[in-house]
Amino acid sequence: MTEDKASVSPNVLEQVLAQRESVVTRLAQIGHVVAVMSGKGGVGKSALTANIAAALGMQGLAVGVLDADIHGSSATSMLGTRGQKVTYGAAGARPAIGVANVSVMSMDMFLPEDEPVHWQHPGGLAADAHVWRGSMEANALLEMLADTDWGRLEWLLIDMPPGTDRYETLLELTPDLYGTIVVTIPSQVAHRVVRRSIAAAQTAGARLLGLVENMAGYIGENGQEVGELFPEGGGQEFAALMDIPYLGRVPFDPRLARETDNGRPFVLEHAETIAGRAILAIVEKLATEVSA
């Protein structure tokens, strides 16, 4: 029995393995690939990711942000690359370059303004979309990981969507993921959801760099902390309970939300504020962690 001719045509398994290998090869050029996840939506994870990226960029480090939130992309808006589209070169798809020289790749860059993500039906019955949509979106993430020409980066932050399924996909695709930052808010409901995400990460053997407690306190007009947004608090105790490091708390500053939404991460011009200092302290802890 000869297999030479059959082996001329790579089969499906070989192609899938080749796709995964291309992710490993691409990410090998990057110093630290870090996921930012919560599991819970609305905790300010994307804004925090943008500010951490900008803070690293301000230090002269080469940083990229991959927006893995296929349906809720926001990185282009927050990092000042809204409207920039993907271009292609010999080494792959080129990311947009945002504030603080942060490179950005996002589904937004493939679509006209305000157009939702809608996949063309790949044949067959439209009612069967549930069969292939999840696979399509996992492969879209794989493609952004494998085909983006980041060049040499010191940090690539991957902004994960709510839920754990895409995070688990990421863990499968990126065996060299350096670690994961977990974001929560001071709410027992949030803690219950985030607890499940942490458990999923721990079960998968992912390295958890630590917990950030976002929206912990409220900054008033006078630039001082004037009260709590949520009554519970307890982020530090929650981190201890989950046996992960506590990276710090970031109070809610309306200016942070407003300026980051407008493509100017708050930390760029307000590093001296309470929230700005809190973000820089988190970045410093991350830098200490990777240099240890």
Binding site: F110, H118, Q120, E143, M144
Partner: peptide
């Protein structure tokens, strides 16, 4: 590069 996204995403803008 990005062939799946470019070809399967409805309304995707043409690549350079």
């Amino acid at each position: 590069p990005m062939s799946l996204i470019r070809d399967a995403l409805a309304g995707a803008e043409p690549a350079q």
